[in-house]
Amino acid sequence: MADYAFPHRHLLGIEGLNRLDIETLLELGDRYVELNRSRVKHTDVLAGRTLINLFFENSTRTQGSFEIAGRRLGADVVTMPIATSSLKKGETLIDTAMTLNAMRPDLLVIRHGSSGAVKLLSRKVDGAVINAGDGTHEHPTQALLDALTIRRRVGDIGGMRIAICGDILHSRVARSNVACLNVLGAEVRLIAPRTLTPPGAVEWGAEVFTDMRKGLAGCDVVMMLRLQQERMDGAYLPSAREFFHFWGLDEEKLSHAKPNAFVMHPGPMNRGVEIESGIADHKTRSLITEQVEMGVAVRMAVLETLAKNAPDFGVQPTAQAGAKS
């Protein structure tokens, strides 16, 4: 597998990736976990490469994770928080893309609040684009880090029963995870009130439940999703306490899953809304902090893999050097 040529220029979503694509990234991620656990967490595989982090939506953990991943690989990392920058003022998305493209980045990590925006940008730039979350569409590196976490801690994903619970409707994490886990052969379940269940979710290749106890029965892994505050104001849900009562993960509901089933959450958590603190902090069952660790490793794998496919700007060294300075 080491000599498998990853056939994609960008990572815009899990959709479109096959099993070999995903496993290639996970295996490389596995190796980076070891590097990250060693004393000198550094290689120079991306030396001389430029990575721009372009976050149109505020983010702490994903942005930080990509930054660390890029630096550990030896890339020059620039983070542009567009949400607060002047680039946002009056400039169209395409203008922003053209401006940044002129800076000749090899890798562009982009998060945007609108579904499809990252794909639009990917058509306008020369570097490799990594989708760090677009609207309620995809968040592929989250799905990859979740898969890496499960593989390392729980075992072979094939045949595993995994539940994704909560606000499926608005979750890019859920969409990417369903796609990823399906490709890897898991039996995926979605558990949510009907107002937060996307229309046609049954066609995603997942079984859909409204009753959490029934949905959790026999699950190896329970993935909780973050519930945005604005969903709890009476439009999609009557209240946070009602959500917690029926869909919040507590000891009792978790007892319906397999004994010692693992619990995951992409963060940031709303303790007491979608997950009880005791479970979030559980020493053996919660994989939540491990997910964060896997995030860096899997993003290193993605960056390295896509950098190999990125166009070589070294063809015209003088001009490129000028543009990059």
């Binding site: 104001d233 009476g234 439009a235 849900l237 009557p238 209240s239 306490r241 009602e242 009562h245 029926f246």
Partner: peptide
């Protein structure tokens, strides 16, 4: 069905 029967926000139907 809605809070205060005002027709704006659903009430705590489950509870």
């Amino acid at each position: 069905l809605t809070v205060g029967l005002e027709g704006a926000k659903m009430s705590e139907i489950g509870l």
